[in-house]
Design a protein around this nucleic acid. Sequence first.
DNA 1: ACATAAAACTAACAACTGTTAGTTAACGAT
DNA 2: ATCGTTAACTAACAGTTGTTAGTTTTATGT
Lengths: 189, 189
Amino acid sequence: MQKETRKEEILRVAARLFKNKGYSAVTMRDLATEMGIKAASLYNHISSKQAILQDIVLAIAEDFTAGMHKIIEDDSNSIQKLEQIIDLHVKIAIENTDGLAALNSDWMHLESKLDYYLKLRQDYENNYRSIIESGIENKEIKAVKPDVLMFSMLSTLRSLYLWIPKKGNVNPEELSASLAQILIKGINT
Amino acid sequence: MQKETRKEEILRVAARLFKNKGYSAVTMRDLATEMGIKAASLYNHISSKQAILQDIVLAIAEDFTAGMHKIIEDDSNSIQKLEQIIDLHVKIAIENTDGLAALNSDWMHLESKLDYYLKLRQDYENNYRSIIESGIENKEIKAVKPDVLMFSMLSTLRSLYLWIPKKGNVNPEELSASLAQILIKGINT
DNA sequence: ACATAAAACTAACAACTGTTAGTTAACGAT
DNA sequence: ATCGTTAACTAACAGTTGTTAGTTTTATGT
């Protein structure tokens, strides 16, 4: 683990502020104060407020894309792939809780990078749905509506960043296992 | 159904704008333009931008509180109560999609009403968890972690406002049934 | 010790923010 | 017709916004 650059530090602090107040409500002076410098000094490291958001959000979006591609190419069954998706979300949510908050709440302010983000997201959901659909074909998954199942799982996984901070010292394996139990195996007696 | 007052119209349009850009990014001039008037004219109907958000969010929060109380007092078993909670969320999400977006994304900007909102929310979650816990005691629900189950269900239900607009003409009964199937009965073969 | 680069500073900008004051038009009831 | 109410308007305010220009301090490598 090599030392954090000043720019990375700005991105990390910005993500935390964005999480608490949202992108639009955080001013460059807020961010500068939190960094212990003046607002103008930020521009030695970053090119604009926009660019901060883009750096934060797109890095995570690309993480998800890469993770999904690995899962798709893997030769495991549908249930195992859904479990791997859970692992992916848990891992990213623990590693980058604040950035994930920005991705979930502030993606609409991406402006010039908005189309790119939406494409990544669309592709991700298409891949997700494909896994579910082929699982239903193979009788590995109950014959539910693929869209509703995807919506339900993704809602939970995308909200992880909201719950992880409330716990503190979350064990990834344990959380993944609990989620798999509930999301995949159902709760009825 | 009686005619909408000018103030209600403002709240409705504001909720739609808040949903698209977030509370902080919507200016009073944006809202006025959308209403076809000048920004200053808004103040004949509302007292401040803050008050608009508070009216929108607290009305819904109180709807949830009232719905939860009815469910708690009902003498049905835990599974039935969870189904009723699903119905409640589906109903409110369909009736007031835009307001629900504001509640979910902009509650942190409630300022003077923030504490009240957080209390309603805390009470709601406590009641929710109680239903799950007594369901587990009665063996009506599998012995999962109550918090993780509540988190999972609530994440899905709280995200409904994001998915409903993508469908269009959603049938509440049908959606409730699909959600109950997936959230309560599990997906494994 | 000195040159170079990195990173901070002060000062200022034009645009935009929520909001107020004072005024005028529209309209139903008397 | 005139009154009173409702709801629109114009003009302006004081404060905040992201960002730039120009300058000075701090750290690094030789």
